[in-house]
């Protein structure tokens, strides 16, 4: 299971990945180092592959920049669970192959340092605080997540 990093409401794209880097930093490793740097400067040194971010409402509000998703993905984050997501951020998660789960009960129950893992196939989040079920994604969304992201999905589609 991964470690839970817990944050509050309205975690915006500027703290997820500062705007000043959006046109200059594109290396995955370097992007991962800037993940959440204006909110939790130690995040990038503490996070391990498979860890999970749990947050309040309106996660990812702000700009449409995909680096705000990719920085987390490259840092090893396996999924984001929130009470709700800003819509472009939600789309960017799906299109980048990072599962984004709207699960208010889990978001309330889980705390920093808890343990959790997401099972997309069976639609359940397993945690040390119990299991949380979620409704399966629509077909189009599942196809993109299954492919690992929109790029991979389109590449498969174009090569068919």
């Amino acid at each position: 299971m991964g470690r839970v990093f817990k944050y509050g409401d309205d975690v915006n794209t500027d703290v997820l990945f500062p705007g000043k880097y959006t046109y200059t930093v594109s290396d995955p490793k370097e992007m991962a180092q800037h993940a959440l740097e204006d909110l939790d400067p130690e995040f990038s040194t503490k996070v391990k592959p498979g860890d999970i971010i749990v947050a309040g409402s309106n996660f990812g509000c702000g700009s449409s920049r995909e680096q705000a998703v990719l920085a987390l993905k490259y840092a090893g984050v396996a999924a984001v669970i929130a009470k709700s997501f800003a819509r472009i951020y939600f789309r960017n998660c799906i299109n980048s192959g990072l599962p984004a789960l709207t699960l208010p009960e889990a978001a309330r129950a889980l705390n920093d340092g808890d343990e959790a893992e997401v099972d997309l196939a069976s639609g359940v989040v397993r945690t040390n605080k119990g299991n949380f079920a979620f409704a399966p994604f629509p077909e189009e969304v599942q196809a993109i997540l299954k492919a690992g992201g929109l790029i991979e999905y389109l590449r498969n589609r174009l090569s068919e």
């Binding site: 700009s63 449409s64 995909e66 472009i88 299109n95 929109l150």
Partner: peptide, 28 residues
């Protein structure tokens, strides 16, 4: 761009999307 919504002022349905999906729209 997230402020694509501005075009709704003249009665368009205008929404912001991400970069990768913009490439997707370009191609498909």
């Amino acid at each position: 761009d997230s402020h694509t919504t501005t075009a709704g002022a003249v009665g368009a349905f205008a929404a912001g999307i991400g970069r990768t999906e913009t490439a997707g729209v370009w191609v498909t």
